[in-house]
Design a protein around this nucleic acid. Sequence first.
DNA 1: GCAGATAGTGGATAAATGCAACTATAATAT
DNA 2: ATATTATAGTTGCATTTATCCACTATCTGC
Lengths: 151, 151
Amino acid sequence: MAEDVDLDVLNDTLSFYIRTINLAVSRDLDECLEGLDVAKGTGKITTLLLVDSHPGIRPSLIAQLTMKDRSAMGRIVEHLVSHGLIRRETSAEDSRAQELYITESGAELATKVRDLVTRQSKDFFSFIPEDEQAQLMDILGRAYRRIVGLA
Amino acid sequence: MAEDVDLDVLNDTLSFYIRTINLAVSRDLDECLEGLDVAKGTGKITTLLLVDSHPGIRPSLIAQLTMKDRSAMGRIVEHLVSHGLIRRETSAEDSRAQELYITESGAELATKVRDLVTRQSKDFFSFIPEDEQAQLMDILGRAYRRIVGLA
DNA sequence: GCAGATAGTGGATAAATGCAACTATAATAT
DNA sequence: ATATTATAGTTGCATTTATCCACTATCTGC
């Protein structure tokens, strides 16, 4: 049945593939992270990892990197704080801004998540040959940096 | 500020790029399609186009191609039907199943959407060189077909 | 100081997602 | 033939996200 369905113009539409594959990876990732205080959305994972590796990082910067607006970011921070994974302080230099720091249990979780996330991605895309994965990462990486204003 | 932030392990995680870029394309696409009875989610667009080019196609097949479950699919079909874009009939061979057909206004919209969607994708990714876009499409296309069970 | 930008908060609304129960019909096996 | 199991679709519900907007506080530059 499905084998010979023609996808119309979507067959040549990059956004279609990005969007559908996103659905699949995200679902799979959610499964892997089930019950881990950090599920659904790149928001929480990215925030946790960035706070862990960049002590004092500000919500607004993470928002930019994850493409969230400030209110969405605020809710993510609130979530992580309320679960005791990160700590929130007002910046000394700019009292509008906050600085985020990891807690002990946050650091523990970060270690675990780092492992799970990279493994999940590798596993999920394992049917793509190594060299093509590298190509993908290279191109998408540049796209990401460009979109987000990192380069 | 943002220029020199290291993304931790996410820097080498394909799923991260897929997920964030997905956010960006989807938002951009939504803007392009604003007010068009078909916004948010690959679901409606794909359904409209597939029904247009495959008269009599079944919801369950579209569900497979768009990675939705039946309930999500049902709601999309319901939405399109209620907006007069497609028509729903019970299949003669299998009265459990339905066959979907495009309506006049649905066909009109499909034409418009086909154009908008392909252009949006091209524009959005225009900063990626042609040949790299082709590579991306090739790899992601195979990934998609594999995930969805098309090959 | 004043005007305008920026950081973060909070609320309300609108959608999408996933889950599970339920009907109806088909296909299979005994 | 009939009992079992699988499939197509519908519906309700609870959860989660997203988006938009208004609001406070603070900073920057004139």
